[in-house]
Write a protein that binds this DNA or RNA. Structure first.
Length: 699
RNA sequence: GCGCGGUUAGCUCAGUUGGUAGAGCGCGUCAUUGACGUUGACGAUGUCGGGGGUUCGAAUCCCUCACCGCGCACCA
């Protein structure tokens, strides 16, 4: 028996050595796997954002994906797990801008090329760091197939997709309302904004013969349309298109009556004026009636000359002054301080989103969403937990056209060209003079939405036929309406098949008290500190056991500690077995009692297999844990002590054989969950030569 | 406002097709140098959120209410 079994299990000394052995074996790459393997099992790693360190949520994802891959690899599949990294356009640019800010710099004083170069260096350094963290979590992914969202071939394919969609009429250039962040100077998609309910004073002003309500007096300078419901009898004396002269903020204006059903008769006075440039609903009304639209607030969030004396003032500063002016003019009817309304903020900097009209590229969602809905109906997509299907369906049924233009440098350039109001999509500059390149980049989701295709070599790479569609998508629950639909849509549109069948969604990892981790609360747990202290296997078990899909997990250090004890328990079980079975090997005949022990474990193993195949990994892990501790250690080993002390030579010999068999099977069953300690012990099991990671699954 | 989830032991949570309530941690008593400084044995604590229904039987299925959490939202 090896001397090291006389000491407690040393995870720190073991893990890097074992990982190196795995990597050297080449088995992470399915092309090198032993045996005759025909069926593929593929997982694409949700590419972590290459702009920071891994958090516990990543550790959970890596663990889940790794255990699925290891299980299938042992079952004899061509198991492929493709790692990657995401440049994470806007996210990374925000991180980098904060860094610049600390250094007293600003991106607005930099040449775009210079900024791009700096962010690239920053990202690549983070990416390398992150990959090592993924390794330390035991990830058995095929590094030779790793992809980065800014790899040349990825960029090219993403751009081709844009051109194809443009030619298919699925992408259009449009002047439409966008979510504008005045701090970051870019438009944002709806999922990049956060809506919060806030208390804002609600003002009612006199507007000619009407009373109109608003929470945003600063947008009202150009309001020259007054809108009411066509069926509102209170205002039946006014007709659509009629003009009236009213006294307003900066003097008299001529207002036009508009009748539109978008107005709620019950709300306020049932009359409103509209600001099409700075409101989605107003924009829609204006479009229906072909009304003028005028910008009131500039891209920096300051008032334009139309505001007269308020020109150049920021909204927050101008609002009370405008209210005061209207009051002095006798136009303020009332102020409701307790009014609550929903405002949108930039999800990164919390700046109030200013709706603005801007020329952007939009993806026409309706026909694509329909593809996704059909796939759900046909059960081509299966959600774990099942109820997430409803969330997915809701989003697909209510999909708004998707703005994919971003006014930032950090991203994949949009291959589009403009000349005299004409817009073209093309990888090359169109023929003729005067074409100007679109300076915008794609929304990150436009590239990551194509990730299952791009990582498997769409459209004609060597892996594409074998590994697309992939088998499982494992990711966070919050991505069910952000990332999943986009992958499904691109998969169906480009690849003609759903990109994956099973969708496993894990919940959030919270702190021990169940509170969301955040830097400001100071309760963030660094996974690598836990692996140093308790071992990666212990961390992995603590993330899996009792963690049902879709449910949030409370992460307590005690739990991790408990599984460190378990790793050591397994270590000592092995020590006992190795000490008492010198010279024996599994495979010889056993008596009836011992055969029953083998059968018992075979039954448990079949049960665990079923759990794993049905994504009940939390049960599978718990079952093997209890077998090893409560059955193997507490009962079988104790009873073996008696046999070794007082039994016949024949009984002793048979018991030795069976103990090796039980240990060997237990190690296999535990391997997907606790790969390091099981692999380390496996190397000392008599008769086993190859790595445990490629041993065949017990049933 | 709409939607989704949760409510089970002190804490964190399991409970897969309805069949006399479970785990880990914590707590209490005792034992133990043992394959295990990280061990073992025994033990206590639950009207399974409230109410109603279906059923021979409900933590589990249906209805309803309450509270907690999350997501979405163009009522100015």
């Amino acid at each position: 028996m090896d001397e090291k079994f006389k000491k407690p299990y040393d995870s720190v000394g073991t893990e890097p050595r074992v990982y190196e052995a795995w990597e050297k074996s080449g088995y992470f790459n399915p092309d090198n796997l032993p045996g005759d393997r025909t069926e593929a099992f593929t997982i694409v790693m949700p590419p972590p954002n290459a702009n920071g360190s891994l958090h516990v949520g990543h550790a959970l994802a890596i663990t889940m994906e790794d255990l699925m891959t290891r299980f299938k690899r042992m079952q004899g599949y061509k198991a492929l797990w493709i790692p990657g990294a995401d440049h994470a356009g806007f996210e990374t640019q925000v991180v980098y801008e904060k860094k610049l800010e600390k250094e007293g710099r600003s991106r607005f004083n930099m040449e775009p090329e210079e900024l791009y170069k700096e962010i690239l260096d920053f990202t690549l350094a983070n990416k390398a760091h992150m990959e090592n963290q993924v390794r330390s979590l035991g990830a058995s992914c095929d590094w030779s197939r790793e992809k980065f969202t800014l790899d040349t071939d990825v960029v090219e394919e993403v751009q081709k997709t844009f051109v194809k969609m443009f030619n298919d009429g699925l992408i259009y250039r449009g002047k439409r309302t966008v979510n504008w962040c005045s701090k970051h100077q870019t438009s944002l998609s709806d999922v990049e904004t956060e809506s919060t309910e806030e208390q804002t004073p609600f003002y009612t002003f006199k507007y000619g013969p009407f009373s109109i309500g608003t929470v945003r007096p600063e947008t009202k300078f150009g309001d020259k349309y007054v809108v009411m419901h066509p069926k509102d009898t209170r205002y039946s004396e006014y007709t659509h298109g009629q003009t009236i002269d009213v006294e307003w903020i900066n003097g008299p204006i001529t207002a036009t009556i508009i009748k539109d059903e978008a107005v709620e008769m019950e709300f306020g006075t049932g009359v409103m004026t509209i600001t099409p440039w700075h409101s989605q609903i107003d924009f829609e009304i204006a479009e229906r009636h072909n009304l003028d639209m005028e910008q009131i607030i500039d891209w920096r969030g300051k008032l334009l000359p139309i505001s007269g004396e308020f020109e150049g003032k920021k909204i927050a500063e101008a609002r009370p002054l405008i209210v005061e002016k209207l009051r002095e003019k006798g136009l303020l009817v009332s102020t409701d301080e307790g009014y609550k309304n929903v405002v949108k903020r930039c999800y990164k900097c919390n700046t109030l989103i200013e709706p603005q009209i801007k020329d952007q590229w939009f993806v026409k969602m309706a026909p694509l969403a329909k593809l996704a809905l059909t796939a759900v109906e046909k059960k081509d997509l299966v959600f774990y937990p099942a109820h997430e299907e409803k969330v997915f369906t809701y989003w697909m049924e209510n999909a708004l056209d998707w703005n994919i233009s971003r006014q930032i440098v950090w991203g994949i350039p949009i291959p589009a060209w403009f000349k005299d109001g004409e817009a073209r999509a093309s990888l090359e500059k169109p023929e003729g003079d005067g074409w100007e390149k679109d300076a915008d980049t794609f929304d990150t989701w436009f590239s990551s939405g194509q990730w299952p295709l791009l990582t498997t070599g769409y459209p004609d790479g060597k892996d594409y036929d074998t590994y697309y569609p992939t088998s499982v998508m494992e990711t966070g629950r919050d991505l069910v309406f952000k990332w999943i639909p986009r992958m499904v849509i691109f998969g169906l549109y480009l690849g003609k098949k759903v990109p994956f069948k099973d969708i496993y969604l894990h919940g959030l990892v919270n702190d021990a008290k169940g509170k969301k981790m955040s830097k400001s609360k100071g309760n963030v747990i660094n996974p690598l500190e836990l692996t140093e202290k308790y071992g990666t296997d212990a961390l992995r078990m603590s993330l899996i056991v009792g963690n049902t899909p879709g449910m949030d997990l409370a992460m307590s250090e005690d739990k991790v500690k408990g599984y460190k004890h378990f790793a050591n328990k397994l270590w000592n079980i092995s020590r006992f077995i190795f000490e008492n079975t010198e010279g024996s090997e599994a495979g010889a005949d056993v008596n009836e009692i011992d055969a029953k022990l083998v059968d018992e474990l075979a039954e448990i193993s079949a049960d665990i297999t079923k759990d794993l195949e049905s994504f009940r990994v939390y049960l599978a892990a718990d079952k093997i844990y209890h077998y090893v501790w409560d059955r193997l250690a507490a009962e079988i080993l104790e009873e073996s002590k008696v046999i070794f002390a007082t039994g016949s030579e024949e009984a002793k010999a048979m018991r030795k054989v069976v103990l090796i068999s039980l240990l060997s099977t237990s190690l296999k069953l535990l391997h997907p969950f606790m790969p390091f300690v099981t692999e380390e012990i496996w190397q000392h099991v008599p008769g086993e030569k190859d790595l445990l990671m490629v041993a065949s699954w017990p049933s």
